[in-house]
Design a protein around this nucleic acid. Structure first.
Lengths: 209, 209
DNA sequence: GCATCCTAATACACACCTGTATCTGAATAC
DNA sequence: GTATTCAGATACAGGTGTGTATTAGGATGC
């Protein structure tokens, strides 16, 4: 019971975080359209007024949710991407990070929901673009770094490889969540391995002719 | 004006097809949740009564829409997959079919919407599974056929390769529609080529050691 | 040509959501 | 300790949706 007395600002931030947490879970579960402002507020332990007081509305809150998630991921990403570390260490940490990110189904569902929204709504697409652009840059940096370390000419620009990689991941994950009987976890791994191994094996073969 | 006088059954079928066509376009554009029964009926030139008279409701109509699309794709698929034709001919026709299917954005959006729904709703997932299962079988058959003709051991089961292939396609397409500035058409092609070429090139290399 | 049947239109009852406007009570300032 | 400020609750007005029950009118059968 040593709960610290919160200042106004801290309290407000706590409210925002709780609302975002509730929205994360609910939207992942029911979808953005099926989730009402009331649902979110209630799940967070507030009333609708709290949402309108803290965000412009449901759409605004959703963007904020994506932004927060993106920032968190960026922070974790940056922590791994440290030039001082040996390449093997970076690779291993990156693999762990990827596994943990990939396991987060709620976030995945929300990003996919966002993609659908972006495909349909030009306004949202513009806001979404800023986030995706950064994310692409990060992954492309990682891809370029590894091809450079390997001393192999990449089969396409790092940006293109990065986007292909992300697309493959997202496609496999959505397939798995929507058709779990067809695409079991082991199949997903195998499918990813086929594509990834082909690329890396080919790169390795070409690096030592 | 030689419009044939329709029998009741023909008339009813026409109504159903028009409703499905309208739903196809509207749901692709606005999403399932944001499309009301009234929207669909009105776009098709009917009133809501027509929908409830022909389908169980919006959800039922959506499943029917997917089923119809699946059947059409199956028919086109079967037409190409003819053992009597030389392999090169099949390959070329398959490529054309794939390009035309891939270009159909409205259908793609609806299938992706269906995937999201399936990921969230167990009941829908079961109905969806039947369609996806068949589709996977078709593509897997195609994959197996080609590896067999090539005389190369596939790097994974045809089913797994098929699902990986489908996931990649869908992932790239969704990326392109949601982030058109990042993933332009040429990038999408390049990204697909990287993965596909790696696999086929590797297979070819291994077939002639 | 009349009775029947069936498709689709219309009317109704109910539920839900949004956004704004107003209010309340607790935190801050002096 | 009183006044002020602000986060969040509550009330309200308006709009939209669903599914069912009823109705109208053209197609079918005899």
């Amino acid at each position: 019971m040593t709960r610290k007395r919160l200042t106004r600002e801290e309290s407000r931030d706590q409210t925002r975080q709780r609302l975002l947490d509730a929205a994360l879970a609910l939207i992942a579960q029911k979808g953005l359209a099926a989730t009402s402002v009331e649902d979110i507020a209630e799940a967070a332990g507030y009333s609708r007024g709290a949402v309108y007081s803290n965000f412009g509305g449901k759409g605004d809150l959703f963007i904020e949710l994506l932004r927060r998630d993106h920032q968190q991921a960026t922070a974790e990403f940056d922590a791994v991407f440290d030039d001082a570390l040996p390449i093997a260490e970076i690779r291993e940490r990156m693999r762990e990070l990827y596994v943990s990110l990939y396991a987060d189904t709620a976030c995945f569902m929300n990003w996919t929901e966002a993609r659908m929204l972006a495909a349909r709504d030009a306004d949202f697409r513009d806001k979404f673009a800023a986030l995706i652009s950064e994310k692409c840059g990060q992954v492309a940096g990682y891809v370029g770094y590894f091809y450079q370390r390997l001393g192999v000419e990449p089969p396409a620009s790092p940006e293109v490889i990065a986007m292909g990689f992300m697309s493959l991941m997202e496609g496999v994950k959505l397939f798995m969540l929507s058709s779990p009987l067809e695409m079991r976890a082991q199949h997903a791994e195998a499918a990813l391995a086929v594509f990834m191994d082909s690329i890396t094996e080919l790169a390795t073969l070409k690096s030592t002719p």
